[in-house]
Protein backbone atom coordinates (compact mmCIF):
# COMPACT_ATOMS: atom_id res chain seq x y z
CA UNK A 1 0.00 0.00 0.00
CA UNK A 2 1.25 3.41 -0.98
CA UNK A 3 0.47 6.42 1.15
CA UNK A 4 0.81 10.10 0.45
CA UNK A 5 2.86 11.41 -2.45
CA UNK A 6 2.12 13.90 -5.21
CA UNK A 7 1.49 12.98 -8.84
CA UNK A 8 1.69 15.52 -11.64
CA UNK A 9 1.82 14.00 -15.11
CA UNK A 10 2.37 15.55 -18.49
CA UNK A 11 2.15 14.42 -22.08
CA UNK A 12 5.68 14.02 -23.35
CA UNK A 13 6.44 14.01 -27.06
CA UNK A 14 9.54 12.45 -28.63
CA UNK A 15 9.42 13.90 -32.14
CA UNK A 16 12.16 11.61 -33.45
CA UNK A 17 10.04 8.52 -32.78
CA UNK A 18 6.83 9.59 -34.54
CA UNK A 19 6.16 7.44 -37.63
CA UNK A 20 3.27 9.58 -38.84
CA UNK A 21 0.71 6.77 -38.57
CA UNK A 22 -1.87 9.08 -37.00
CA UNK A 23 -3.42 6.41 -34.82
CA UNK A 24 -3.33 9.03 -32.03
CA UNK A 25 -5.67 11.26 -34.04
CA UNK A 26 -8.12 8.40 -34.44
CA UNK A 27 -7.92 7.41 -30.77
CA UNK A 28 -8.45 11.01 -29.67
CA UNK A 29 -11.42 11.76 -31.91
CA UNK A 30 -13.07 8.42 -31.10
CA UNK A 31 -12.68 8.98 -27.35
CA UNK A 32 -14.19 12.46 -27.56
CA UNK A 33 -16.80 12.13 -30.32
CA UNK A 34 -17.37 8.43 -30.95
CA UNK A 35 -16.25 8.84 -34.57
CA UNK A 36 -12.93 8.54 -36.33
CA UNK A 37 -12.17 11.99 -37.66
CA UNK A 38 -8.71 13.58 -37.47
CA UNK A 39 -10.33 17.02 -37.79
CA UNK A 40 -11.93 16.41 -34.39
CA UNK A 41 -8.73 15.17 -32.81
CA UNK A 42 -7.10 17.34 -30.19
CA UNK A 43 -3.70 16.10 -31.29
CA UNK A 44 -2.50 16.75 -34.83
CA UNK A 45 0.44 15.29 -36.73
CA UNK A 46 2.25 17.76 -38.96
CA UNK A 47 3.72 15.99 -41.92
CA UNK A 48 6.73 17.06 -43.97
CA UNK A 49 6.91 14.72 -46.94
CA UNK A 50 10.04 16.33 -48.40
CA UNK A 51 12.06 14.76 -45.59
CA UNK A 52 9.41 12.44 -44.11
CA UNK A 53 9.46 14.16 -40.74
CA UNK A 54 6.38 14.02 -38.53
CA UNK A 55 5.78 16.48 -35.74
CA UNK A 56 2.88 16.16 -33.31
CA UNK A 57 1.07 19.31 -32.12
CA UNK A 58 -0.97 19.11 -28.95
CA UNK A 59 -1.85 21.34 -26.00
CA UNK A 60 0.97 21.43 -23.47
CA UNK A 61 -1.31 22.78 -20.69
CA UNK A 62 0.46 26.16 -20.22
CA UNK A 63 1.03 27.32 -16.65
CA UNK A 64 0.04 30.86 -17.61
CA UNK A 65 -2.16 30.18 -20.60
CA UNK A 66 -3.10 32.86 -23.16
CA UNK A 67 -6.33 31.00 -23.90
CA UNK A 68 -7.38 31.24 -20.25
CA UNK A 69 -6.43 34.90 -20.12
CA UNK A 70 -8.39 35.84 -23.20
CA UNK A 71 -11.54 33.81 -22.48
CA UNK A 72 -14.37 36.27 -21.65
CA UNK A 73 -16.66 33.68 -20.03
CA UNK A 74 -14.19 31.68 -17.93
CA UNK A 75 -14.90 28.60 -20.00
CA UNK A 76 -11.17 27.98 -19.91
CA UNK A 77 -9.49 27.66 -16.53
CA UNK A 78 -6.23 26.26 -15.21
CA UNK A 79 -6.70 23.46 -12.71
CA UNK A 80 -3.71 23.79 -10.37
CA UNK A 81 -4.27 20.33 -8.91
CA UNK A 82 -4.19 18.34 -12.14
CA UNK A 83 -2.24 20.82 -14.23
CA UNK A 84 -4.88 20.66 -16.98
CA UNK A 85 -6.22 23.75 -18.74
CA UNK A 86 -9.86 22.79 -18.50
CA UNK A 87 -12.60 23.73 -20.93
CA UNK A 88 -16.29 23.97 -20.05
CA UNK A 89 -18.45 23.94 -23.20
CA UNK A 90 -21.46 25.12 -21.17
CA UNK A 91 -19.79 28.44 -20.49
CA UNK A 92 -18.30 28.83 -23.98
CA UNK A 93 -19.77 31.26 -26.48
CA UNK A 94 -17.44 30.06 -29.28
CA UNK A 95 -16.01 33.55 -29.76
CA UNK A 96 -12.81 31.81 -30.90
CA UNK A 97 -10.54 34.28 -29.11
CA UNK A 98 -8.70 31.32 -27.57
CA UNK A 99 -8.04 29.90 -31.05
CA UNK A 100 -6.45 33.21 -32.01
CA UNK A 101 -4.54 33.56 -28.75
CA UNK A 102 -2.94 30.12 -28.58
CA UNK A 103 0.52 30.44 -30.13
CA UNK A 104 0.70 26.71 -30.93
CA UNK A 105 -2.64 26.11 -32.61
CA UNK A 106 -3.54 23.75 -29.80
CA UNK A 107 -7.02 25.14 -29.32
CA UNK A 108 -8.94 23.98 -32.35
CA UNK A 109 -12.32 24.24 -34.01
CA UNK A 110 -13.93 20.88 -34.75
CA UNK A 111 -14.86 19.74 -38.26
CA UNK A 112 -18.11 21.70 -38.21
CA UNK A 113 -16.35 24.91 -37.23
CA UNK A 114 -18.96 25.38 -34.50
CA UNK A 115 -17.24 23.87 -31.48
CA UNK A 116 -14.04 24.55 -29.58
CA UNK A 117 -11.95 21.46 -28.88
CA UNK A 118 -8.83 21.10 -26.76
CA UNK A 119 -6.84 18.35 -25.08
CA UNK A 120 -8.17 17.35 -21.65
CA UNK A 121 -5.64 14.53 -21.15
CA UNK A 122 -8.69 12.23 -21.17
CA UNK A 123 -9.12 12.83 -17.45
CA UNK A 124 -5.68 11.45 -16.68
CA UNK A 125 -5.45 8.45 -19.01
CA UNK A 126 -4.73 9.79 -22.52
CA UNK A 127 -6.00 7.60 -25.38
CA UNK A 128 -3.34 8.90 -27.78
CA UNK A 129 -0.61 7.52 -25.53
CA UNK A 130 -2.27 4.10 -25.30
CA UNK A 131 -2.36 3.66 -29.07
CA UNK A 132 1.13 5.01 -29.84
CA UNK A 133 3.12 1.91 -30.70
CA UNK A 134 6.25 3.94 -31.50
CA UNK A 135 6.20 5.42 -27.98
CA UNK A 136 6.56 8.89 -29.40
CA UNK A 137 3.84 9.90 -26.95
CA UNK A 138 4.17 9.14 -23.26
CA UNK A 139 2.29 10.23 -20.16
CA UNK A 140 4.92 10.72 -17.51
CA UNK A 141 5.63 12.40 -14.21
CA UNK A 142 6.83 15.97 -14.62
CA UNK A 143 10.39 15.20 -13.57
CA UNK A 144 10.60 12.45 -16.22
CA UNK A 145 9.52 14.57 -19.18
CA UNK A 146 12.99 15.08 -20.54
CA UNK A 147 14.58 12.04 -18.94
CA UNK A 148 14.66 10.03 -22.19
CA UNK A 149 16.36 12.84 -24.04
CA UNK A 150 18.91 13.40 -21.31
CA UNK A 151 19.60 9.71 -21.08
CA UNK A 152 20.05 9.31 -24.84
CA UNK A 153 22.57 12.13 -24.84
CA UNK A 154 24.25 10.78 -21.73
CA UNK A 155 24.75 7.37 -23.35
CA UNK A 156 26.69 9.12 -26.10
CA UNK A 157 28.98 10.79 -23.55
CA UNK A 158 29.28 7.59 -21.54
CA UNK A 159 30.70 5.82 -24.58
CA UNK A 160 33.33 8.53 -25.00
CA UNK A 161 34.26 8.52 -21.33
CA UNK A 162 34.20 4.72 -21.05
CA UNK A 163 36.63 4.52 -23.95
CA UNK A 164 38.97 6.79 -22.03
CA UNK A 165 38.11 9.82 -24.12
CA UNK A 166 38.18 13.46 -23.13
CA UNK A 167 34.97 15.48 -23.26
CA UNK A 168 36.41 18.68 -21.87
Amino acid sequence: MVKGGVSMKLLSIDISKCTGCRACEYACSFAHTGEFNPLDSRIHINEFLDDFVFIPSVCTQCEDAYCVGVCPTHALTKNRETGVVEYDPNKCIVCKQCVIACPWGSIKLDHTGEKIIKCDLCGGDPECVKVCQAKALKFVEVEDVVLDKQHRNAVYYKEIVSAGGDTS
Binding site: T19, G20, C21, A23, D51, F52, F54, Q133
Partner: peptide, 17 residues
Protein backbone atom coordinates in the same frame (compact mmCIF):
# COMPACT_ATOMS: atom_id res chain seq x y z
CA UNK B 1 17.94 4.11 -43.40
CA UNK B 2 17.06 7.53 -42.00
CA UNK B 3 13.91 6.54 -40.11
CA UNK B 4 10.83 4.38 -40.40
CA UNK B 5 7.42 5.56 -41.51
CA UNK B 6 3.96 4.24 -40.71
CA UNK B 7 0.96 3.99 -43.01
CA UNK B 8 -2.43 5.05 -41.68
CA UNK B 9 -3.11 3.70 -38.20
CA UNK B 10 -0.28 1.20 -38.49
CA UNK B 11 1.59 -0.04 -35.42
CA UNK B 12 4.12 -1.95 -37.56
CA UNK B 13 5.56 1.08 -39.41
CA UNK B 14 7.79 -0.91 -41.76
CA UNK B 15 8.14 1.95 -44.29
CA UNK B 16 11.73 2.94 -45.05
CA UNK B 17 12.80 6.56 -45.29
Amino acid sequence: LVRNEGCDSCPIACGRV
